[in-house]
Computed example of a mutant assay.
Amino acid sequence: MNTILVTGAAGLIGRAVAAQLRARGDRVVGIDRMASGSDETVVMECDLRDSHRLHAIAAATTLDAIIHCGAHSGPMVARDNPYDLVQVNVVGTANVLEVARIHRLRRLVNCSSVSTYGDTGPGPVIEDVPQQPSTVYGATKLAAEKITTAYAVEHGLDTVSLRLSWVYGPNRTTFCILRQMVADALAGRPTRTTSGADALRQYIHAEDAATALVCALDASNLTQRAYNVTGDDCRTMTEAANVVRQILPEADIVLGPGPDLGDDQQQRFDISAARRDLRYTPAISLEQGIRDMAETLRAGRAG
Rank of each mutant, 00 (worst) to 15 (best):
T61D: 13
T62G: 09
L63Y: 07
L63M: 10
D64S: 14
A65P: 09
A65C: 09
I66A: 02
I67G: 03
I67C: 04
H68W: 04
H68S: 07
C69P: 07
G70F: 00
A71C: 10
H72I: 14
H72P: 00
M76C: 08
M76Q: 13
M76R: 12
V77W: 09
A78K: 09
R79M: 13
R79P: 02
D80G: 06
D80R: 14
N81S: 13
Y83H: 12
Y83T: 14
Y83P: 00
Y83N: 07
D84F: 02
L85T: 08
L85F: 03
L85W: 01
Q87G: 01
V88M: 11
V88G: 02
N89G: 03
V90W: 02
V90M: 07
V91I: 15
V91A: 06
V91Y: 03
V91R: 12
V91H: 05
T93W: 01
T93A: 07
A94N: 11
A94C: 12
A94L: 15
A94I: 15
N95L: 07
V96D: 00
V96G: 00
V96A: 02
L97D: 00
L97Q: 03
E98A: 09
E98T: 12
E98S: 11
E98D: 15
V99W: 05
A100D: 04
A100W: 05
R101P: 09
R101N: 10
R101S: 11
I102V: 15
I102K: 13
I102A: 09
H103G: 02
H103S: 11
H103F: 15
R104D: 10
R104A: 13
L105E: 01
R106E: 10
R107E: 03
V109K: 04
V109P: 04
N110V: 07
N110C: 12
C111V: 15
S112Y: 08
S112T: 12
S112D: 07
S113Y: 00
S113D: 01
S113T: 12
V114Y: 02
